[in-house]
Design a protein around this nucleic acid. Structure first.
Length: 560
RNA sequence: GCGCCCGUAGCUCAGUAGGAUAGAGCAACGGUUUCCUAAACCGUGUGCCAGGGGUUCGAGUCCCUUCGGGCGCACCA
């Protein structure tokens, strides 16, 4: 249910029909219709909807745009029951369409009936997977992971509302080189903490969290691991640490409001032979060749400028090879759209990944990678290093404790993924009082308060069939209605452009319109008919706020 | 050197997949509370949309180029 989209669609159809009938009458000549849009103009004076078709086909039709617009308008079937009030031709040739408010007055009823489902678009019949965070299980979750978590989870919610079947997935990088380094680091710490003089590896993970992990290992195993064969000892240590880290990640993300459908292990991909198998099959298809002892994936597209190694001279597959097998696995599971949320430092990986899935026989556009720029952490003016190795970073669980889940999530998703984020811990802590998230939550709490007040005064919302929403004539009321009506369309557009921050903007706009209304008009103790209509308007506003906030993973409190 | 992202008000950022007169928040100043929560509202000011070319009816948005910032360019992940 997307009223704005339906109206846009209806208007488009009418315009196309008008044009075709004008052509039949010989009033205008053209071969093909250009891609035109029907949009909600920024200026109210330009109508409720506007269309740019006349300008776009001026060349083809060899006519002045305003003349074309005139022909269209004259040929348009307005329909008896239609709600078009007037049509104007304006500016260089815009067709501006003014509706009467009938359609708007249906909105609160629709919202009330749909409740939690208001905002949902038609089923798309597509299965989409969003893979995000996928942090290395070798350390704590940092601010980049936090941003990825907020963006990925919000995007998954948006896609669900946009009509897709959505699954969330976390890819556990529990294999490969970094795990070896992880093991070296843990082992060295274990030896040190059990009183042996062992040097810590230069490239090891020096974070305090690993020391704690090793203490836990000692708590369970004591120094019994020392006399074991090295391989056995390492396995016990690594398995213990991975288990601990992964459960920390799960726990922390859950407290951030993020829950996954699937936790996918890279190690299993290796152990099941899937990696070797995919390399072999690409080899057979001629996509892989040998050079200098290694095996290379041949670049297919012009967008990637070099070939990439999948199998090293030492016989071990690269991360890229595992990722190819991983993506094949995703498509084999029936996803016809896969979205990965990655940090900008991985952008070089995007095109070769697309090349690879193409080589596997899938379409390039079955994969989208949402790149987000990196987060830089400041404390005042001072840059806080985020390296896991130096271990001086602030972890996500600490941030949640300091700011709360709601404010933290809102902050991370408020900005476009394309803009880099300077997160000042000191400022965030100071500003927690006037963080924009409270502005929105306050709107919701105020609405709840209205209903509490009403109940206390013995006032309740009349039954729907006794409400006349056309009494809502004030500018602030109409603006609210329009904004509410726009919610499903806003979701559709956020999904289509992979732009989760639009929902944060939307909810701020909606809250702003509510606050303006609230300060100028009263809901309770106005004339009875109007009171009923306003109560329904408030209910619709509250539902929309709550739904939008739930997409962001932010709570909608009843009191503040 | 090559590639990707960014450059918009004093600061932080939007700008509806090319549309009409570029907007919000913060900060500054002034006002609003016998009335549903003042964590709110209303008002006042600011822009060579980094610079320069181009594409077209129309460019903050697309293309080229210069400058500035970030990130990549491994038989790491």
């Amino acid at each position: 249910m997307n009223p704005i989209h339906e109206i846009k669609h209806l208007i488009s159809q009418k315009i196309v029909a008008a044009l075709e009938s004008a052509r039949e009458e010989g009033l205008i000549n053209y071969e093909q219709l250009p891609e035109f849009i029907v949009e909600v103009p920024r200026e109210k004076g330009h109508g409720d909807f506007a269309c740019n078709l006349a300008m776009l086909m001026a060349k083809e039709a060899k006519m002045a745009p305003r003349r074309i617009a005139e022909i269209i308008v004259n040929a348009m079937d307005l329909g008896e029951k239609e709600q078009i009030e007037k049509i104007e031709i304006a500016g260089p040739g815009f067709i501006n369409i003014f509706l009467n408010n009938k359609w708007l007055y249906q909105i609160p009823f629709i919202v009330e009936k749909m409740g939690e489902r208001f905002g949902y678009n038609e089923e798309q019949g597509r299965k989409v997977q969003v893979e995000f965070v996928s942090a290395n299980p070798t350390g704590n979750l940092h601010m980049g992971n936090a941003r990825g978590g907020a963006i990925g989870d919000t995007l998954a919610n948006i896609l669900k509302y946009a009509g897709y079947e959505v699954e969330r997935e976390f890819y556990i990088n529990d294999a490969g080189n970094q795990i070896e380094i992880f093991a070296d680091s843990l082992e060295a710490r274990y030896m040190q903490l059990t009183g042996h003089d062992v040097e810590f590896p230069h490239n090891g993970y020096a974070g305090q969290d690993l020391i704690q992990t090793v203490r836990n290992i000692i708590h369970q195993y004591g120094d019994s691991l020392i006399d074991m064969p090295k391989e056995k000892r390492r396995k016990i240590i690594v398995d213990f640490a991975l288990e601990e880290k992964i459960s920390y990640i799960k726990r922390t993300l859950k407290s951030f409001g993020v829950e996954y459908d699937v936790w996918f292990s890279e190690k299993e991909l290796h152990e099941s032979g899937a990696v070797q198998k995919v390399i072999k099959s690409l080899q057979e298809k001629g996509y892989i060749y040998e050079k200098e002892g290694a095996w290379w994936f041949k670049t297919q597209s012009s967008e990637e400028d070099k070939d990439n190694v999948v199998l090293r001279a030492n016989g071990l597959p690269t991360y890229f090879a595992a990722d190819i097998a991983y993506h094949q696995n995703k498509y084999q599971r029936g996803f016809d759209w896969v979205i990965n949320v990655w940090g900008a430092d991985h952008h070089g990986h995007v095109n070769r990944m697309k090349d690879a899935i193409e080589a596997l026989g899938y379409k390039r556009d079955m994969l989208d990678v949402l790149l987000m720029q990196l987060v830089r952490l400041y404390r005042g003016k001072e840059l806080v290093r985020m390296s896991k190795r130096t271990g001086t970073t602030i972890a996500l669980d600490e941030l949640i404790e300091e700011l709360g889940k709601d404010a933290a999530r809102f902050f991370f998703v408020m900005r476009s993924p394309d803009s880099q984020l300077d997160f000042d811990l000191r400022l965030a802590a100071e500003q927690s009082q006037d963080n924009p998230v409270y502005y929105v939550q306050y709107a919701h709490a105020r609405i709840c308060s209205i209903f509490r007040q009403a109940a206390a005064a013995g006032i309740s919302r009349p039954p729907l069939d006794a409400i006349n929403t056309s009494l809502l004539q004030e500018e602030e009321e109409l603006a609210l209605l329009r904004k509410i009506a726009d919610f499903p369309e806003e979701i559709r557009l956020s999904a289509a452009t992979l732009a989760p921050h639009r929902i944060a903007r939307y909810v701020l706009d909606l809250a702003g319109l509510f606050h303006s209304f609230y300060n100028r008009h009263r809901v309770i103790n106005v004339e009875a008919q109007l009171q009923g209509a306003r109560l329904l308007l408030m209910q619709a506003t509250g539902i929309t706020l709550k739904n939008a906030l739930s997409i962001l993973g932010v709570s909608a409190p009843e009191y503040m």
